[in-house]
């Protein structure tokens, strides 16, 4: 894998920087922008011409929007003007990209304003690829997506991993895969299907204990037979509950935390909740469940799971449970090397 950090940069080079500025509104939500600043500054400082492409929101639900505010923010952080150009395809976008000056960074239109972005439309990828000659791939938050601005673009132009991407991989390395010498806990929530398919099913096989929340927990409660009423079950409820049932059937009792008390509240129809109250869920009585019109919004962690969290803290975190490594290599029967 080519690294941007190793690449000699020069004035006049035409780079597309693929970023993941899918940020929440409000203060504190710009970490996905800030993480790209050093790479962008290095490109610009070397005189490269940078067409910045990012996604935000979703085309399907109309939440994708124009990103002029992010261009203003970037300009402030980088100390140089960053123009927002509302197109990412067509003759206007191509002309604007061709007219970039040495060292200039311009933020082009949100890739998710196009329906083809998320289905990796090859024609859309060709349009994006016309904005430069090389791709610097940042945006770790979208590194799992086979979209037009990610793998589609990389299929058309030579690509380099930005430092931001490499930093994330390095950071996450110690938490990746199963390490039999360390006690590990994964707390998994969210509403996307991948949180169940990957977070619950796959992490469940790599971590000693999974504490589910959000739609992941709701799917497990539904799989156990509890009525969950208005509780969020994610993008693909039937499939998610099916996966949850499989995990539930296979999990050891101390490997998966299922609460016996949840908070429920009544959705108000505008994203808020009211009439919150606590509710006991008896695992021996699956008919017990969330009353009609209510949704699960929180849960109480059982004492045994809190004690498990304390194990992470007690002796200096996960190192507390580290044991002398067993011999590894052919014939030794030792643990697999951690990736």
């Amino acid at each position: 894998m080519r690294l941007l950090a190793d690449e000699p940069l020069a004035a006049g080079q035409r780079w597309i920087f693929s970023a993941g500025f899918n940020v929440a509104d409000g203060p504190g939500g710009l970490g996905r922008v800030d993480t790209e600043l050093a790479d962008l500054a290095r490109l610009s400082g070397a005189g490269a011409r940078v067409a910045l492409l990012t996604h935000q929101g979703r085309h399907a639900d109309g939440s994708a929007r124009h990103l002029g505010d992010l261009a203003t923010y970037l300009g402030g952080r980088l100390g140089c003007p960053v123009r927002y150009l509302p197109w990412s395809t067509g003759p206007e976008a191509r002309a604007a990209a061709a007219a970039l000056r040495d060292g200039e960074i311009a933020l082009f239109g949100n890739t998710r304003l196009h329906a083809g972005e998320e289905r990796n439309d090859p024609d859309l990828a060709v349009e994006f690829a016309a904005l430069g000659e090389r791709v610097a791939m940042g945006g770790f938050s979208k590194a799992h997506r086979r979209h037009a601005s990610t793998t589609g673009l990389l299929g058309l132009l030579p690509g380099w991993a930005a430092d931001s991407l490499v930093r994330e991989l390095t950071l996450l390395g110690p938490w990746a895969g199963r390490d039999p010498t360390r006690f590990s806990v994964a707390v998994v929530g969210g509403r996307k299907q991948e949180k169940v398919e990957v977070g619950l099913r796959r992490l469940g096989s790599a971590y000693d204990l999974v504490i589910p929340g959000g739609a992941v927990l709701n799917c497990l409660l539904a799989a156990r037979g509890h009525p969950v009423a208005e509780s969020v079950l994610g993008d693909s409820p039937a499939r998610a509950v099916e996966v949850a049932a499989e995990v539930l059937a296979a999990a050891a009792p101390d490997a998966l935390h299922l609460p016996e008390e949840v908070a429920v509240a009544r959705p108000d129809g505008s994203g808020g909740y009211g009439e919150a109250r606590w509710l006991r869920l008896d695992p021996r009585r699956p008919d017990d469940g969330v009353p009609p019109g209510y949704a699960v919004v929180d849960f109480t962690v059982l004492p045994w799971a809190l004690a498990a969290l304390d194990r992470l803290v007690g002796g200096g975190g996960a190192r507390w449970s580290r044991v002398p490594p067993a011999p590894t290599g052919p014939g030794t029967g030792g643990p697999a090397t951690r990736c």
Binding site: L172, A176, G190, L203
Partner: peptide, 12 residues
């Protein structure tokens, strides 16, 4: 980490 789904995928 800035990654949610991507980080899950990478860890798993």
């Amino acid at each position: 980490s800035t990654g949610g789904g991507s980080a899950l995928r990478y860890l798993a």
